[in-house]
Design a protein around this nucleic acid. Structure first.
Length: 635
RNA sequence: GCCGCUGUGGCUCAGAGGUAGAGCAGCUCACUCGUAAUGAGCAGGCCGUGGGUUCGAUUCCCACCAGCGGCUCCA
């Protein structure tokens, strides 16, 4: 007999060799119906796996990450099987489960069309209906290679060849379809009750543009039809709050064909932008930053000195002035270096926190452009902190707390990643290790959780990245803190220490918003265009009922404007319902309806975008209410 | 940059080998109205750009440009 410890801590005795499925059946028939996989001592396994020794067992359903992945992985096999039925010559590449569903990459002669997807989906329905059992088996490396060679699957052969020595090579068979796969999987294809193929896209074999472009089919799967419907509904919602659409509708910003990747900001977008910038300036002043502005075009020689020429040239734009070569800055740091170098610094002056809202230009591949999220020119809310090595931890912590303060104001969730030395880098391995450890130490000292991102650092140093989560659950890298020993060296920066000798400062590069443009995009999607009052380009719209109320309405407008509130007035000859509808679609936080009653009593009838009709109140009461909301940055 | 799809008035979208429509928005007029669309009329388009096929192309073909979905890359 063996002892199995369950999730709730209870222990049960079973015969040796019992399967996970049998354990689930023993607990309850209901559980046995929904269970998809089991986690045995931390390892996710198939339901058919046998237990041979004492262990802890978590039964995984679709609500567990492991269960969800097993189901969706099975869905990807169903997809592959369907494709093989319809296109026997298609070569199989990889087909994993991903957070939002699954995909499978195929090498086919003719790309899939939307109609093909429908056909494939129908074939998948058949396979699901047949409820075919998935059977796991293992082969030796030679047998496995032979197996896939016989089936003419070159990608699979390549995968098997690259599997590490000693790795079990497992396969899953469902009817006439067998795939190389580590598993685990749902028991049978019938478990994939609700699925949908969503899109088809090109994808490089093994993610490298040097390799062949394959056809990737994306889909998603759930155990219940209603969950699938919810998901599709959410996708639709996400489309509605797309910042590119809202930006145009709300007159915030736009991108024209004349300037691919170079956004235009409209007057209302500028209001939003200026609010963000002035908030940024206020917060930086409080924390003893000094603001500078450096030129957009600087001599090419500077970029050789900074190392950008060697590590970043492909992303830069160049120009010529009077026969001399100049570069358009892709980063602000070299300019910041020149500023620091201008004077002699004492250790007493450090740390020096120098900030800059700097417009940078980067040549991004045309296919990567995406609204304001991914552009070719953007404003970094940059800062460079010059300090002694002893000050590193405190300064890093200072920036972490600054970033945390900022994100909280907007109600964002975020997570942190630490990126280490990339392939193309400057400086000694020793410096990199010291810098990386310094960042780790800072994070550990405040017990901040973080993920390590190997090889993703900047070419001059490791970094801590802050990833915001947007309305669709996509994450965007915004804030970053980069520690740099290289630039000070390259630019021969120094300060005079207490000993009267010259020393080399260390520097931090950091941004909070990351890119103002991207941040505005994220904010737009986050709030679905309905910005909190303090950020709204127009905070109040005054809606007089008929002509005779215009004069009083204008007076109300003046009083609000005198308080610094951003007001519009709708004097058009339209019915009140129509004016309200438009103001609501413009997502204006407060509408003031003005008729006889209000005019006679110096009042306003307040309608909130969120809560609807709030009834009449004195103009003063309204001004106090909105003032509090603005000052408190209520979201 | 690569793969696929798309490109028609400010916006959303019809349409067909014989040189274009609808709704919304805009303008004009009437209505003076109490919490999400009053009615009528008017105006607005080199059908992304450049080639080709054709008697004739916005429609078919090719190239380019831009957008969209991905890949890669990244703030």
């Amino acid at each position: 007999m063996i002892q199995v410890t369950l999730k709730d801590g209870s222990k049960k005795e079973y015969r040796k060799g019992i399967t996970i499925k049998e354990v689930a059946q023993d607990i309850s028939a209901g559980l046995a119906r929904v269970v998809l996989a089991g986690e045995v001592d931390g390892k996710v396994m198939d339901l058919s796996a046998e237990l041979h020794q004492d262990c802890t067992l978590h039964l995984l359903t679709f609500d567990d990450e492991g269960g969800k992945h097993a189901l969706r992985h099975t869905a990807s096999h169903v997809l592959a099987q369907a494709v093989k039925h319809l296109y026997p010559n298609a070569k199989l590449a990889i087909g994993p489960a991903i957070d939002t569903g699954f995909y499978y990459d195929f090498d086919v002669e003719k790309p899939f069309s939307v109609e093909d997807l429908e056909k494939i989906e129908a074939e998948m329905q058949k396979i699901v209906k047949e409820d075919i059992k998935l059977e796991r088996f293992t082969l030796s490396r030679d047998e496995a290679i032979k197996f896939m060679e016989e089936r003419n699957e070159p990608y699979k052969v390549e995968l098997i060849n690259d599997l590490p020595e000693g790795e079990t090579i497992s396969f899953y068979k469902q009817g006439d379809f067998t795939d190389l796969c580590a598993g685990p999987h749902a028991e049978s294809t019938g478990k994939v009750k609700a699925f949908k193929l969503l899109s088809v896209a090109g994808a490089y074999w093994r993610g490298s543009e040097k390799n062949k472009m394959l056809q990737r089919i994306y889909g998603t799967a759930f155990t219940k039809k209603s969950d699938l419907d919810d998901y599709l509904f959410r996708l639709e919602e996400a489309r509605k709050r797309d910042h590119r659409k809202l930006g145009r509708e709300l007159d915030l910003f736009d991108i024209y064909e004349e300037g691919p990747g170079f956004p235009f900001f409209m007057p209302k977008g500028m209001v939003l932008r200026n609010i963000l910038e002035s908030y940024w300036r206020d917060e930086h002043k409080k924390r003893n930053y000094q603001e500078i502005r450096t030129p957009i075009i600087l001599n090419e020689e500077l970029w050789h000195r900074s190392g950008h020429w060697d590590h970043y040239k492909d992303n830069m734009y160049f120009t010529k002035i009077d026969e001399q070569n100049f570069a358009i800055k892709p980063m602000n740091c070299p300019g910041g270096m020149l500023v620091f170098k201008r004077k002699l610094h004492s250790y007493r002056d450090l740390p020096q926190r120098i900030c800059e809202l700097g417009l940078v230009h980067r040549h991004e591949l045309s296919g990567t452009l995406h609204g304001l999220m991914r552009v070719r020119c953007f404003t970094q809310d940059d800062a460079h902190i010059f300090m002694t090595p002893e000050q590193i931890t405190d300064e890093v912590l200072g920036v972490i707390s600054l970033i945390d303060d900022f994100y909280k104001v907007f109600g964002f969730k975020y997570h942190v990643e630490l990126s280490t030395k990339p392939e193309s880098y400057m400086g000694s391995d020793e410096d990199w290790e010291i810098a990386t450890n310094a960042l780790k130490k800072a994070l550990d000292s405040i017990k901040m959780e973080y993920k390590i991102n190997e090889g993703d650092g900047a070419f001059y140093g490791p970094k801590i990245d802050f990833h915001l989560e947007d309305s669709i659950g996509r994450t965007w890298q915004c804030g970053t803190i980069q520690l740099d020993f290289q630039m000070p060296e390259r630019f021969d920066l120094s300060y005079i220490g207490a000993d009267g000798e010259k020393h080399r400062p260390v520097m931090i590069h950091r941004v909070v918003f990351g890119s103002i443009e991207r941040f505005i995009a994220i904010l737009t999607e986050h709030f679905a265009g309905a910005f909190p009052v303090w950020l709204s380009p127009i905070q109040v719209k005054i809606l007089p009922l008929v002509d005779k109320h215009h004069e009083y309405a204008a007076k109300v407008q003046k009083e609000l404007e005198a308080k610094g509130i951003r007001v519009e007035i709708d004097l058009r000859n339209e019915k009140i319902g129509y004016k309200i509808r438009e103001a609501q679609l413009e997502k204006i936080p407060y509408m003031l309806v003005i008729g006889d009653k209000e005019m006679d009593n110096n009042m306003v009838a307040v309608r909130s975008r969120k809560e609807g009709d709030l009834g009449a109140m004195s103009l003063n009461d309204f001004m106090n209410k909105i003032d509090q909301e603005i000052k408190g940055k209520v979201i």
